[in-house]
């Protein structure tokens, strides 16, 4: 049996290997991705985001327990940051989900962001597809600790849960301008803290000062460590999932292609223009054999990611 066939058959080991193939960008990955297309679109994709330490992983652990009690199988993608200096990472989200360590209906995969900005890893959309194709009822995706601009999750998840923690003071203010805007469900975790009610009141005020649709965002209180509030969270997510059309994989595919095309164009135009001193230096080093192509690419992408003065549009 090929890896692809085993994956479609729901084999956990095949899924694990396929994820690595996609993460490492091997040739096998493209074969697998092409082969799962007809099986993608069934899973309910639920995203969890929020600042570091808010309790996302622990809350997911509780949410998974509730899903399992209702008989649904669950795959979890937990993203943690990579070191920008060494590329290394400590992926520690599993520690909060040990209750499911020996449950066949739960598959957890930790991903390092590997330099990708936006709260996820570059391959996260593809890993969701793999888990979907392997037959899981629910795919949960947890972002890195996020604050202001990590809103990518909302494009991938049918329902986005934003987890807040009480007592973050100014940090609560900071996230108000960012990820709060993408919330389908808001949860104040650590509900046993005396400050939880204040945080909930602040969130309630900020949401209700905005236009109509934001008033429909439920604001829940939960204590992930005790399980208090988990039942309400499940109900709120299920209600939002009920409002969603089935996963629009075609549109997701379209967006993906669009993004790849735009990125390729940006890089090509920057290189061919021959005006950026950083890129010129990379070309020189490459020509002199001082750089391997992989290093040159890394430097080039970094150079392309620098903000540029606005161009004249015509």
């Amino acid at each position: 049996m090929t890896l692809l066939a085993e994956l479609l058959d729901g084999d956990r080991r095949a899924l694990a290997r396929a994820i690595s193939a996609v993460e490492d960008g091997t040739e096998q990955a493209s074969v697998i991705l092409a082969g799962i297309h007809h099986r993608v679109g069934r899973a309910a994709v639920v995203g969890f985001t929020g600042p570091p330490g808010a309790g996302k992983s622990t809350l997911i652990g509780g949410y998974v327990s509730a899903l399992r009690q209702s008989g649904r199988t669950v795959a979890v993608i937990a993203v943690d940051p990579s070191s920008p200096l060494t590329g290394g990472a400590i992926l520690g989200d599993r520690v909060r989900m040990l209750a499911h360590a020996e449950d066949d209906g739960v598959f957890i995969r930790s991903l390092a962001a590997r330099g990708h900005l936006g709260g996820l890893s570059a391959t996260a959309p593809l890993v969701i597809d793999l888990m979907d194709a392997a037959g899981f009822d629910v795919v949960i995706i947890e972002t890195v600790g996020a604050g202001q601009s990590e809103v990518e999750i909302a494009e991938l998840a049918a329902v986005t849960v934003v987890v807040c923690a009480p007592g973050l003071g100014d940090d609560v203010q900071a996230i108000k301008a960012g990820i709060l805007e993408i919330a389908d469900v808001l949860v104040v975790n650590k509900g046993d803290s005396p400050e939880a009610a204040v945080t909930r009141a602040q969130l309630f005020a900020s949401q209700h000062l905005r236009s109509g649709e934001h008033r429909a965002v439920p604001i829940l209180t939960a204590t992930a460590t005790t399980g208090q509030g988990i039942a309400e969270l499940v109900a709120a997510i299920d209600a939002k999932l009920g409002e969603q059309p089935p996963r629009k994989t075609d549109s997701a595919q379209r967006i993906r292609r669009m993004l790849a095309a735009q990125a390729a164009r940006l890089v090509r135009d920057s290189v061919l223009a021959g005006t950026d001193p950083t890129i010129e230096a990379i070309c020189q080093d490459l020509q002199n054999g001082r750089l391997a192509i992989a290093q040159a690419l890394a430097r080039l992408f970094a150079a392309c990611a620098q903000p540029k003065p606005p161009e004249k549009t015509d």
Partner: peptide
């Protein structure tokens, strides 16, 4: 290990062999 470029999946305390 992180400082030497490894991706470390940390599982914490009290794990069984099966886990």
């Amino acid at each position: 290990l992180r400082d030497h470029g490894y991706e470390v999946i940390y599982l914490g305390l009290h794990n069984s062999a099966e886990a």
